[in-house]
Design a protein around this nucleic acid. Sequence first.
DNA 1: CGCCTTCGTGACAGCGCTGTCACCGGTCGT
DNA 2: ACGACCGGTGACAGCGCTGTCACGAAGGCG
Lengths: 357, 357
Amino acid sequence: MADVAKRAGVSVSTVSRTLRGLPTVSPDARRRVEEAARELSFVISRQASGLVTGKTGAVAVLVPTLKSWFVGAALSGLGAGLRGTGLDLLVYSVSDMADRAAFFDRLPARRNADALLVVSFDLTADESARLDGLGMPIVYVSQQAPGRASVYVDDVMGARHGVRHLINLGHRRIGYVHAARGPSGFSFSSQRRFLGYREALAEAGVEVDRRLVVDVAASGRRGAEEAVGGLLGLREPPTAIFAEIDQVAIEVMGVLRGAGLDVPGRMSVLGFDDHEMAEWMQLSTVAQPAEDIGRTAGELARSLIDDPDADPALHRVLPTRLIPRASTAPLGTTAPLGTSSPLPAPDAPDGTARTRD
Amino acid sequence: MADVAKRAGVSVSTVSRTLRGLPTVSPDARRRVEEAARELSFVISRQASGLVTGKTGAVAVLVPTLKSWFVGAALSGLGAGLRGTGLDLLVYSVSDMADRAAFFDRLPARRNADALLVVSFDLTADESARLDGLGMPIVYVSQQAPGRASVYVDDVMGARHGVRHLINLGHRRIGYVHAARGPSGFSFSSQRRFLGYREALAEAGVEVDRRLVVDVAASGRRGAEEAVGGLLGLREPPTAIFAEIDQVAIEVMGVLRGAGLDVPGRMSVLGFDDHEMAEWMQLSTVAQPAEDIGRTAGELARSLIDDPDADPALHRVLPTRLIPRASTAPLGTTAPLGTSSPLPAPDAPDGTARTRD
DNA sequence: CGCCTTCGTGACAGCGCTGTCACCGGTCGT
DNA sequence: ACGACCGGTGACAGCGCTGTCACGAAGGCG
């Protein structure tokens, strides 16, 4: 910085003021400083400025994994939301138990970020208390925390709309497939989606049949085969299946088609998420705006950082959106064997939205 | 830190030494300091220590997107590789052109990280030069840069093995589907995989038929339909299709099955990546160890940071691995309509590896 | 024309650490 | 028994910035 000052013929104070965009700099000095800074490709050291301002210029985000579609999309939106704010993104991916203990023991985010975002992370009471003691703004993403800022999607409503869509198509026996995920995250959405399923059935006067509710035990094909097998083995099998997440829905579709059952002719399948793959597979699904969630969380974090008086317990609930594609159809429709889109010259309209609610 | 010192009854110097793990601290003092630090939940401020040591304690990673399976997996591995080193992970996701210009103009990573990892990012000459002038260690991931450390997979060999697998199954007319991705990344792998395809054919004495090589223009089903339609419309259509990436392979499978063509009975399909979805879909593929790539990159970065004498141009080439699943089969096999795994009680062995090379 | 205000600027302390140096007591070698 | 040595410790400067204060010059006012 001293170099820049010398080159521009001003003091370091003026350089600092210029580079921070303070108004009390003459146009002439400003120009000279900017030029000198460019020539020396000088950038301010966050470390040094942070030392005195007490700000780090970064937000930390704690995620249970980086290999999930949702986390990737949320981070992507978060990055977009932070752009132009000068805030950097510090990612702590904490999956196994050893990492986890280390993270909560050392709390490396402390003092190294201005805010912490916690994404889909199932916290123990101890961990939660530890974060509360952190003394920095926290935003919970895809989960709720009492008294803390949160951004999440209305999973209950989403699931209700999804199931209602199936009901409107004439389905009454609707299977539900829980996604058994690790112990580390996502349980908030999981519970709420199932609640929405039950509410939609109740609303339609359909009783919940526990035999129609199954778990995908393991990840991978095996679990889906067992779950679907269980459902099909019932005396009264379902005519539609609602899966908690798209991944499971896609596995279910694969298993059904592999067994020669046409989707949606013989079985409608509905997912939740709008995973990128859902479109490729023509899966009807309840979309959650993962990027918007990230972006919103970023904005919330920023307001918490900039404005100490901001309500630290602000909740933002984002809407879901039903996207009917070709994996759901009215009850009783029996499509030709094989599925919707023929080739090479498609002789049917594109499979999207073949019905409406 | 002064608080900790007071509480432990020692000087700040001793606290600093203890917390940094220097050996010249008596066991007694060490214990007292650690206790005091825990009680006050004190963590060292990277800002302040960085100011004097010149290290930031973070590595920056530049990615073209966060919504790609590969990037997620690589970051995940990177995180694992960095764990225990005390290095934090700073993520710069730069996709659109405006961001990009801003990033390379301001180079925010400068002085805020000890090393920069550049993942699958197609750089212009100017950008490349700008990074070279950064004066910090750089590791290129999933791409090569002359004179710079790089970690990548042997795409050529991977594609060769994949195509050889198809050839060993008796296929001779093998289609190739390019994945048209954005301008921002992945072109390195793209070129190399196609090269491997051609090499494998040459090796087997099969001439490359340009009509068998198609592009998926848009993302989404539409592009795949056109590509597959083009292939099937040929006088001599292929009997197998090799897709540059799993995403495209899965779309291709969906289109084929949607058109009533059995996979692999009528058409074998092979992908590249081993996207998580590939297993769910029983897609044969050439796996690239995305997490290992990330981990290796992290190790490389660390060695570059710790050891100034380390070769800044070290290349690490990781192997691919062919994973035959149920989407490829010997030429001439005609499976029953519908695919491999029946239900509820599977009466055939699991579809994995129905043949070997 | 002298006074007060405003604007632009420079000097300087100090943010929380680390590296260096000096120092002190005890142990070892001769 | 004496100096050399070493493990353990504290004092202190200084890393690169920012915030505060003081100051001179220019402009506005009575």
